[in-house]
């Protein structure tokens, strides 16, 4: 396994790009491509990464870059890889799509490529909203979050749906490799990218990538916020290899989700009741991920009493 020290000095995503200061996407792209190396060709669908990574005639990529549209990462990777194989070239076709481009508009194309088990690497840079268009809700937006399409109004406050479980959707395609990553966990990050690089077939790396303006937070806290996300259970680090799920990092005692939320302006409006709802969702996820079979529930934060009755929201979260 490569350690940080052994990483290449090659700057395959050069400085001078125009991402916002502290951009979690830029951070993840730089390190992913650093591990993947020069023999990669990259497809980037419509996203911030197209704009800050290339603005004609400039580009940050030092590997081949292709872009056409928003919803077609899976398909474009398929086409690239087919051409490379036909021409006998050893190239890793890598896609860097956002959450909107993966959870929502690009889901079909991604699913097609996954189902066909195309020999490509699909990377989802999940910053939990449509950031390039100015922070609109996507299927990856967490419960309670402010976005410009889930504003904090007098009647409705923030996003009312819970983050879509993309991991299970992707893994259900029975692909060779699915993994979640966080830039705040460098060794885990490097190991998973390296692993994905060396597996054949459809690999999916799901990266948690904070967005400074979208999450309304201090640019210095990009890494810190991903750590808190993991410690609170809002983001979990695991991998599914040939159907086998493995937790790759298990936090110690669960931290309250509130610690994570309070770092970010997008959650600051949340009522105690909404925070509890989100905490319940996290608890369920926590138990799902970290609890050994047959062991008692390990989530120690009790659900709020008013929700013991089966309400609509309760059903939403727990099923009928």
């Amino acid at each position: 396994m490569i350690t940080i020290k052994e990483l290449s000095d090659d700057n395959l995503f050069t400085a001078g790009h125009t991402a916002c200061p502290g951009c979690g996407v830029a951070m993840s792209i730089r390190n992913a491509i650093r591990v993947l190396g020069k023999d990669a060709a990259v497809y980037v669908p419509a996203s911030c990464a197209v704009v800050f990574g290339t603005t004609f005639p400039y580009g940050a990529w030092k590997v081949p870059f292709f872009h056409t549209a928003f919803e077609n990462t899976g398909a474009c990777l398929t086409g690239m890889q087919a051409a490379f194989e036909k021409k006998g070239k050893q190239v890793i076709s890598v896609g860097f799509a956002g959450d909107g481009g993966t959870y929502d508009i690009g889901l079909q194309s991604m699913s097609g490529a996954a189902e066909r088990n195309e020999d490509v690497l699909y990377i989802c840079l999940d910053n939990e909203a449509y950031m390039n268009t100015g922070i609109q809700r996507s299927g990856g937006t967490p419960f309670g979050a402010w976005t410009t399409t889930t504003p904090v109004g007098t009647k409705i406050q923030g996003n009312r749906r819970f983050k879509k479980n993309l991991g299970d959707i992707v893994a259900a395609h029975e692909i060779p490799y699915y993994a979640t990553l966080s830039i705040g966990h460098p060794l885990d990050f490097i190991r998973k990218v390296e692993k994905a690089k060396n597996i054949r077939g459809f690999r999916f790396l799901h990266m948690f990538t904070p967005c400074i303006p979208g999450w309304k937070m201090d640019p210095a806290k990009t890494v810190e916020v991903t750590k808190r996300a993991v410690e609170s259970g809002m983001w979990t680090l695991y991998e599914v290899e040939n159907g086998e799920k493995k937790i790759t990092y298990k936090p110690g005692k669960m931290k309250s989700v509130k610690d994570y939320l309070m770092m970010q302006g997008r959650f600051r409006h949340m009522s105690e009741e909404d925070i509890k709802k989100l905490q319940m969702w996290v608890c369920r996820k926590w138990n799902l991920h970290y609890k050994e079979k047959g062991a008692p529930q390990i989530c120690e934060i009790a659900p709020p009493e008013e929700h013991h009755a089966v309400t609509e929201e309760h059903r939403e979260m727990h099923g009928p």
């Binding site: 050069t14 400085a15 001078g16 790009h17 125009t18 990574g53 005639p57 400039y58 580009g59 940050a60 990529w61 030092k62 590997v63 081949p64 870059f65």
Partner: peptide, 13 residues
């Protein structure tokens, strides 16, 4: 100056 892949280094920020 530079254009194409890697040319963003022309952009001092």
């Amino acid at each position: 100056g530079l254009i194409g892949p890697g040319s963003f280094i022309e952009n001092k920020v």
